[in-house]
């Protein structure tokens, strides 16, 4: 039985407490970064790299775009049909250092009214709740309070 400590996908983010990060991989030959992780081959067409190292992704990024889900998604999305559907946000975040966009759910309570393209957000641990009290750990994006935004990023 899944518990709140079981990741929804193994190896996609750090476990435990402390500095929470998404985990990707980086090609030793060309430096390309992958999320979800590629562990066998580099996908760059002119790179023959087959050695990729795990690498934590940037903690913060900027909103590339966002939306929400007003209707319950179909399976295999875990949700409890006994409970009323509560919309959640989906946020696509541009990571400056990796030059990539990563999609994730917004943290609970974040609505589209709280978001704007270009806004700074931070990756935080989250929980995905399923039927009958089952749950899994996942990642969420959380807007960074304005006074906390790093000048340089």
């Amino acid at each position: 039985m899944a518990s709140a400590r079981t990741p929804v996908v193994a190896g996609w983010f750090t476990s435990g407490d402390g500095d929470f990060r998404l985990l990707g991989t980086r090609c030793r030959a060309c430096g390309a970064v992958y999320f979800p992780r590629e562990d066998t081959f580099c996908r760059a067409p002119r790179c023959a790299g087959e050695e990729l190292d795990e690498v934590p992704l940037s903690r913060r990024g900027r909103v590339w775009s966002y939306t929400d889900g007003r209707y319950r998604p179909p399976a295999p999305y875990p949700s409890d049909p006994a409970r009323d559907w509560a919309p959640y946000t989906l946020i696509a975040v541009e990571l400056a250092a990796e030059r990539m966009v990563v999609l994730g759910q917004g943290a609970p309570g974040v609505t589209v009214a709280d978001l704007a393209v270009g806004m700074e957000v931070e990756v935080v641990p989250g929980v995905l709740a399923g039927e009958g009290g089952q749950s899994w750990t996942t990642w969420h994006w959380l807007p960074v309070p304005a006074e906390d935004v790093e000048e340089s990023s």
């Binding site: 929804v8 979800p36 179909p74 996942t138």
Partner: peptide, 30 residues
Amino acid sequence: PDDPDWLRFRVLGATNPAYFALWARRRMAL
């Protein structure tokens, strides 16, 4: 879990309209 189409539903509940909406919102902003 090795199928990206299965994963986007499993992990994020990201339906096709969700992607259309992300593109639409980006057009509004840009």
